[in-house]
Structure formats: structure tokens, C-alpha cells
């Protein structure tokens, strides 16, 4: 029997291609969530309606991933001090990753904002603790 595909109407689903994150044996539903808004990477941040181009994902040097709007908002707050909200390392975009292309400039301004004089990591934490205690 000869079998010919005359027309094909394939349905593809897209997802963010996160290097090193092989989802071959992971069920959808167990997928990773944005560390800030707790919505799936492939969904949107709370402020967006459409996923994908309008609400991209960024990958940090620390390998923590966020919706770009979420991390932007975080970095704009004074308490952020340019740190990753997950691991408290200095947040910067991972280089050489396709996802981050195009987002570097958006975040560059925020990351370059002058920060308070560098404090020892421990002191900083203490200050944070105090802040909580005062409240």
C-alpha cells in the first residue's frame, strides 16, 4: 500500500525551552512555577492576559526563572537590592540562553540602579529581620 500525506494540520504546543530542564518524564501539571507569582512558566504573570511574547520568561544566572514582569517588579522594590528573591544572590540574566535574548536590555536598567552601600550578607539579613520585627 502506498500512503501519502496530502495535507497535514498538526497541532503543536509551545513551551519555554529551559536548558538543562528535560521535561521528557514530567507530567504537565507538575511543571515549574514562577518563584514570585507561582504561576506556570508557560502561563502569564498576574498582570498579563496573553502568554508567550507578551509575558516572557527570564532565566537568572542562579538558574532561578521568573516571568519577566514579576522579576522586574521585584527588582524595582527598594528591599530587592538587586537580589534574586529565591536565593538572595545578585540577580543577573544567564548569558547564552535563547530565552534571555531580548530581555537583557529591559532588565539592564533595573540591575544598574544604584544600590545602598554594600553590606555584609549577614548584616543585610539581620536588617531584614529587624524590619519584620518592627512591624
Amino acid at each position: 500500500m502506498q500512503l501519502e500525506f496530502k495535507k497535514v494540520y498538526p497541532v503543536f504546543s509551545w513551551s519555554w525551552d529551559i536548558p538543562g530542564d528535560d521535561d521528557a518524564d514530567r507530567e504537565i501539571g507538575d511543571e515549574d512555577l514562577c518563584g514570585i507569582c507561582r504561576v506556570s512558566y508557560n502561563g502569564t504573570c498576574p498582570g498579563c492576559k496573553y502568554p508567550g511574547d507578551n509575558c516572557p520568561l527570564v532565566i537568572g544566572e542562579c538558574n532561578h526563572n521568573f516571568h519577566v514582569h514579576c522579576i522586574q517588579q521585584w527588582l524595582a522594590t527598594p528591599t530587592a537590592k538587586g537580589l534574586c528573591p529565591m536565593c538572595r544572590q545578585q540577580f543577573s540574566l544567564k548569558r547564552g540562553v535563547a530565552i534571555n535574548e531580548g530581555q537583557v536590555e529591559k532588565l539592564a536598567n533595573l540591575l544598574l540602579q544604584p544600590r545602598p552601600a554594600a553590606l555584609a550578607a549577614d548584616d543585610q539579613d539581620m536588617m531584614m529581620d529587624q524590619e519584620f520585627a518592627v512591624r
Binding site: 501519502e4 495535507k7 497541532v11 509551545w14 525551552d17 540562553v97 535563547a98 530565552i99
Partner: peptide, 24 residues
Amino acid sequence: YTNVKKGRKLRLHPEQSIVELQLR
């Protein structure tokens, strides 16, 4: 697709996809 939409990948869903077949 990956070239146009940087940082994204595709997965095919055969059960949703439709094909027009010609059998001889």
C-alpha cells in the same frame, strides 16, 4: 519556530492533529 520565537520549543500532539491521507 524556535528561530522565530527565541527560547521556545514545540511539541507535536498527534491525537489533535489532522491529516488528509491518500491510500493506493
